[in-house]
Design a protein around this nucleic acid. Structure first.
Ligand SMILES: [Mn+2]
Ligand SMILES: [Mn+2]
Ligand SMILES: [Mn+2]
Ligand SMILES: [Mn+2]
Lengths: 217, 217
DNA sequence: TATTAAAGTTAGACAAGACTAACAAATTTA
DNA sequence: TAAATTTGTTAGTCTTGTCTAACTTTAATA
């Protein structure tokens, strides 16, 4: 079975791969905070194990096997985050670090039970999809709040990323997934928006509006 | 922070230390299934870190610091076992392997929450005491079932050890902690006993009776 | 296009944690 | 007590995952 280190590399490659599926050694080394030679030597190892496609001086990509392995780890990560929030009372800003460790627990039954207890959730606490038992992810194409127009009535359904800064920002304002927003105004000069929830009115910067995925209602 | 490996060595030393508190390198190496030189070199390392008392050719013992560190890991192990049984529906025979891994999670808050959710339990699912937040264990001196006499009415409160074989044996017979037993007969020839629960009557070997801790009622 | 910068690669070193082979000390048994 | 066995120790090797220094290839820029 793959070591924790290998699992983290696979998950990193999976996360870094955009639509093209291609990742550079540089990006990988920055993401995991290791030196380039360290990332490079792991890439060569994963290549010999058939998990990464690699040719000298070419961009990296996960093989089908690598993608599946990575998807299964991401599944455990997101199931864990959901469990910590739903069943143990953690805040969505507290769970990533713990899940980063628990995702490596070697016990299929443990994650099966989590899944059952949670009622087979489709998304994690940040609105990201939980890969299925084959490691496949169902990507959704949400609109960003920044793409909405005045008068639009939307529900906050996911975040583009889950940085501590963003989560703290939203926590301070009591903004959570599921909250219903009405767009009041959109400022073309700086991309900032004014939205209301029925309780409060918020002035949100473009940076924030770009990070909020919404669905019309 | 101590590596998983170091944590496992400390816990092993703690578990192996009897009343004398002394452990041999041989016992340690057998317990952890590593070679004697491997155990030996780790002992020297732990000694330089002030966690183990060590002199050439003398028995080992944990220092106060080592004992505390070990107790805190054992606490996390037993809290986890309790959580898995009480909150996730695992059987008492399934939890050790998972707890062996989860005990190494670096997140005080995670174990705090477990403790709270469980209502600050004093014992794990096998009846072993959970060390307190300082790493101290409250040892109880239970009677063994094998020390009881015909007519004694007792409650099963703990196990002397939690081997898979014993747990499976007890599972097959629906014998669990808390069950009330009346001793019918004690056979001096082989130490076997006959006991009843109100529902069933059991013939138990000395091996089993020695492994069952009971309290009179 | 020539130069510079960035990205990728190779070589060599290191720490942690494991091993085997060989030997020394202590303990047990004859 | 002498021999045999067990226990403890040393020395040297290996794998995994990390690093720095130096070099090469590719990409960007003047
Ligand atoms: Mn996360
Ligand atoms: Mn991780
Ligand atoms: Mn256990
Ligand atoms: Mn462990």
């Amino acid at each position: 079975m793959a070591s924790q280190t290998v699992e983290n590399y696979l998950k990193a490659l999976f996360s870094l791969a955009g639509d093209s599926g291609e990742v550079s050694v540089s990006d990988l080394s920055k993401y995991l905070e290791v030196s380039k030679p360290t990332a490079h030597s792991m890439v060569k190892k994963l290549h010999t194990e058939g998990l990464v496609k690699y040719e000298k001086y070419k961009p990296l990509s996960l093989t089908a096997r690598g993608k599946k392995a990575a998807g299964l780890i991401l599944r455990k990560h997101r199931l864990t985050e959901m469990y910590l929030v739903e069943k143990m009372g953690f805040g969505w800003e507290q769970v990533h670090e713990i899940a980063e460790q628990i995702e490596h627990i070697k016990s299929p039954l443990f994650f099966e039970r989590m899944d059952e207890i949670l009622g087979f959730p489709s998304h994690d606490p940040h609105g990201s999809p939980i890969p299925d038992k084959s490691g496949n992810v169902q990507y959704e194409t949400y609109d960003k709040l920044s793409q909405c127009s005045p008068g639009d009535q939307v529900t906050l359904v996911a975040l583009a990323h889950s940085s501590d800064e963003l989560l703290d920002y939203l926590n301070k304002r009591n903004l959570r997934l599921g909250i219903e927003l009405t767009v009041l105004d959109s400022e073309s000069f700086d991309g900032s928006m004014s939205v209301e929830t029925g309780i409060n009115t918020y002035a949100l910067s473009k940076l924030v509006c770009d990070a909020l995925y919404v669905e019309p209602r």
